[in-house]
Simulated scan of single mutants.
Amino acid sequence: MLKRWLAVPALMMTFGGVALGADCPALLEGQLPKLRAKESIDLCQRFAGKPLVIVNTASFCGFAPQFKGLEALYQRYKGAGLEVIGVPSDDFKQEAKTEEETAKVCYVNYGVTFTMTDPQKVRGKEAVHLFQVLAQQTGAPKWNFYKYVVDRQGKVIANFSSLTKPDDPDLIKAVEQALASKP
């Protein structure tokens, strides 16, 4: 009898995991290593059901000062549930050569507190899954600091070029639309 009672919680955990997996949008499947940390970010566990701004970054790009604007955007809306995910990439040949240097640019030079990953591929067949799905939904980033606003269901509701600053009224409108979306 005791064995049967022990099996029930194990069975519930198994099916519970399946249910959680089914609720995860394709965009958030998988993990990415966190910048200058030994941990990986389970994208589904950390971001499912949350409105997102996802941006590919580069430390030595002329648009790098947008880190300040992205941080301000994050601070303005994080209390409402917004998450910002920065994904450094050398796809356009403007990323630092080491993670330490990337981290210094993000954390020290610009005071970034939103989630940053280790440098990743964001274009083409070798792009990480997150950017493959973004490309399927709207298109691959055309340059560094390309911004995607994603609703709570994991669907891109707007994307913006590198020229669009984080405080642009159209980007703010998209963020507020993502915040208003139903989980």
Rank of each mutant, 00 (worst) to 15 (best):
K3P: 03
R4K: 09
A7R: 04
V8N: 03
V8Y: 13
A10W: 13
M12E: 07
M12G: 11
T14F: 14
F15D: 03
G16V: 13
G16W: 09
G17E: 08
L20G: 07
L20T: 12
A22D: 11
A22L: 15
D23H: 07
C24Q: 09
L27Y: 10
L27F: 11
Q31H: 12
L32Q: 07
P33K: 14
P33V: 15
P33D: 15
K34W: 11
R36F: 08
A37H: 11
A37K: 10
K38D: 14
K38C: 01
K38Y: 00
K38G: 13
E39P: 03
S40R: 10
I41A: 13
I41G: 05
I41C: 09
L43V: 13
C44I: 15
Q45I: 08
R46W: 00
R46T: 15
A48D: 04
A48G: 01
G49D: 05
P51E: 13
L52F: 07
L52I: 12
L52Q: 01
V53K: 01
I54N: 05
N56V: 15
T57H: 03
A58T: 09
S59D: 01
F60K: 02
F63E: 02
A64M: 07
K68T: 14
A72H: 06
A72C: 03
L73F: 09
L73N: 04
Y74P: 00
Q75L: 12
R76S: 10
K78C: 08
K78Q: 09
G79A: 06
A80W: 08
G81Y: 08
V84T: 07
V84G: 00
V84S: 07
V84L: 11
I85H: 01
P88Q: 02
D91F: 09
D91Q: 05
D91T: 07
K93N: 04
K97N: 04
T98A: 11
E101K: 11
E101Y: 12
A103I: 12
A103W: 08
V108M: 03
V108H: 02
V108L: 08
V108C: 00
N109W: 10
N109T: 12
N109V: 09
G111N: 00
T113W: 02
F114S: 01
D118G: 06
P119I: 08
V122A: 00
V122P: 02
G124T: 11
K125V: 15
A127Q: 00
V128K: 03
V128P: 02
L130E: 02
Q132I: 10
Q136P: 05
A140Y: 01
A140P: 00
A140S: 07
P141G: 10
W143N: 00
W143P: 00
Y148D: 04
V149L: 05
V149T: 04
R152S: 04
R152I: 06
Q153D: 00
K155Q: 14
V156C: 06
I157H: 00
S162W: 09
S162H: 05
L163T: 10
T164F: 14
T164P: 01
P166E: 03
P166T: 10
L171N: 05
L171C: 04
I172H: 01
I172F: 05
I172E: 07
A174P: 06
A178I: 14
S181P: 04
S181C: 09
K182D: 11
P183V: 15
